[in-house]
């Protein structure tokens, strides 16, 4: 039974009966039904990576948690999206995000428009228990219109994916591993001298935090426009 053969299934999310197609993910079905599952790495129109782990949900009858963004719905599934255990895990994961690099909301271009900040507010994260790591990270302002500040990057790889999958330039990628990992342009050259970058700015529009921003934006001025994405993704699908 291939995933493409679309079947109609019914399942339960948080006790509510919902209908769905078998090629939809738990996250998609939940959003369709106005059930909020937090997530940071997933964005409509881009491929799924399942790396932020915020969208983990419980499936009754199994002990393991599954990421809602990468799991397809099945007939009779009974999904719990909010529980004490999940909210503890989500808060800790957010703490790990905040502790990893230097997230200083008060001086950030994305203050009040930041998805990381938004999730922290929504999930009631009042403080970070783990130690801040305070790494020394560079800021690359060599591009004529945009800046990448690695101190605010959460490695969600949205920029990598949009550049590869929509713009088809593949300027961005990830170098290094573990906590040493960084998104890079071309073969780790300054963004400004990149030969593949088309300066389309899609990476800047999908960035969830203040890591990628337009030059000239001051504190709290960087808001994002993403409505183009699902449209472009559809066009790409049709043409291929």
């Amino acid at each position: 039974m291939s995933r493409l053969s679309q079947q109609v299934v019914t399942l339960k999310i948080d006790g509510r009966d919902v209908g769905a197609r078998s090629n939809e993910t738990i996250l998609e079905v939940a959003h369709e039904n106005d059930i909020n599952i937090p997530s940071l790495c997933s964005v409509e129109g881009l491929s799924v990576v399942g790396s932020c782990r915020l969208c983990l949900v419980e499936v009754r009858g199994t002990s393991e948690l599954v990421s809602a963004c990468s799991t397809y719905v099945r007939e009779g599934m009974d999904i719990v999206t909010h529980s004490e255990r999940l909210s503890h895990y989500r808060q800790t994961i957010l703490s790990l995000f905040f502790s990893e690099r230097n997230h200083l909301c008060a001086v950030c271009v994305s203050n009040n428009h930041c998805e990381l900040q938004g999730q922290a507010q929504a999930l009631g994260l009042s403080h970070v228990e783990v130690a801040y790591r305070y790494p020394q990270l560079p800021v690359d302002a060599s591009h004529e219109r945009f800046v990448i500040d690695h101190n605010r990057c959460i490695l969600c790889t949205r920029c990598v994916r949009v550049c590869d999958e929509i713009e088809r330039a593949h300027t961005w990628d990830v170098a290094g591993r573990g906590v040493q990992a960084l998104v890079i342009t071309d073969l780790n050259e300054p963004w400004g001298s990149s030969e593949t970058c088309t300066s389309c700015g899609k990476c800047v529009q999908v960035c969830p935090t203040g890591a990628l921003f337009e030059k000239g934006k001051a504190v709290a001025e960087m808001s994002r426009r993403r409505r183009f994405l699902p449209y472009l993704a559809k066009t790409k699908e049709k043409s291929s």
Partner: peptide, 12 residues
Amino acid sequence: GKCVPCRVGTAQ
């Protein structure tokens, strides 16, 4: 370095 719990969790 892909997922956060492993990337930052092991470091912590």
